Computed example of a mutant assay.
Amino acid sequence: MEAIRLLLAYAAHCGFKLFQMDVKCAFLNGIIDREVYVAQPPGFENKSFPNHVFKLAKALYVYVDDIIFGSANEDLCADFAKLMTNEFYMSMMGELNFFLGLQIKQTAEGIFIHQEKYAKELVKKFGLDCAKPMRTPMHPNIKLDKDEHGRDVDETRYRGMIGSLMYLTSSRPDIIQSVGVCSRFQSKPKESHFSAVKRIIRYVLGTTNYGLWFPKTDSFQLVDFCDADFAGDRIDRRSTSGMCCFLGKSLIVWSSKKQATVALSTAEAETKHIEVRFHSIREHVQNGNLDIQFVNSEGQLADIFTKPLIEERFCKLRTELGIITSSLFP
């Protein structure tokens, strides 16, 4: 998904029109018209002939899939499509509007990606389509723990909800922190955890048409924000690191992850993401390849990936990340 978002961000920046072609079939165990040899796969070595190779009688698997391509010159796209259809068993699907579950809308001002169809199906699947929508995915004062004395809930259903929400984060970074917190309790979920997940889905219910906006801009500079809370997890007091990466004004990569070790100070919590890469990063700074700057709390966009926020702060950061509603587009 990162590669797809990178391509979309670049296309928006350059004013490319993206198109899609479909490979009509994949070949499993196809006939080979030439000699092909492969090394002995691990675990399937012939002990009598350890240095020999296998000669294939049929193709193991030739995997092909949809192709995305684009250019600022649409005539070149037409020529490329004609060339590909003449050489391979492919068909032109036209302008790119749906790929790997992402709905894509291309305009002269940029590209908008969302999963509205999937979000509506998710809410309906778990029976919350008639529930009251929530304004944020997680209450700012919530502190989830193991809740060992709480009432057990269906593990299969709970895991299904988490898995479905994780797929939605392909275009909805605003829910990744709350989904990540709830995913920590998949082994023995309790009623309190189940209520937290339902709140996320109720938030999705009110924001099904939200997605990521990649605007057409002159700047294509790589900018990354990193942040961490301090000892935010109630169980082991580990901190949560959050990061988001922009190309120009297009958000292409984000993460929210609990740190592997316990930080004894806020400084350790803020820099734990560097780990053994510290010296490499320092060299890049000295060589002028990187410019590291302090960002105050008000301008720290990665704050949304480290902890639950109050509604005003959450909505402000959501907008600054480029998460907007599809109703803005005709």
Rank of each mutant, 00 (worst) to 15 (best):
M1D: 04
E2T: 11
A3T: 11
Y10G: 11
A11Q: 09
A12E: 15
Q20C: 13
D22M: 07
K24A: 08
C25L: 01
A26Q: 02
A26L: 04
I31G: 03
R34V: 04
E45S: 10
E45Q: 15
E45R: 13
N46M: 02
V53S: 10
K55N: 07
A57W: 03
A57N: 09
K58C: 12
L60S: 05
S71T: 05
D75N: 12
F80M: 13
F80V: 03
K82E: 06
K82Y: 01
M84C: 03
S91T: 14
G94N: 09
L96P: 12
F98H: 13
L102R: 05
L102K: 04
I111N: 13
E116F: 14
K117I: 06
A119W: 02
L122C: 09
K132S: 10
M134H: 12
M134T: 11
R135I: 08
T136F: 05
P137C: 06
P140M: 10
P140Q: 03
N141G: 09
I142W: 08
D145H: 02
G150H: 00
T156L: 10
R157F: 05
R159D: 13
M161W: 02
T169F: 00
R172L: 04
I175F: 01
V181M: 03
S183C: 09
R184I: 04
R184D: 04
F185M: 05
E191L: 09
H193L: 04
H193P: 15
F194M: 15
V197Q: 03
R199D: 08
I200Q: 09
T207M: 04
L212W: 04
Q221K: 11
A228K: 07
R234E: 09
S239N: 09
G242F: 08
G248M: 04
Q259C: 02
A260F: 06
T261W: 08
A267S: 11
H273K: 12
I274M: 13
I274G: 08
R277W: 11
R282C: 14
H284S: 10
H284N: 12
V285T: 00
N287W: 06
N287M: 08
G288T: 00
F294Q: 14
G299N: 14
L301E: 14
P308S: 04
L309G: 12
L309W: 02
R313D: 13
C315E: 14
T319C: 14
G322W: 12
I324D: 00
L328S: 07
P330M: 05
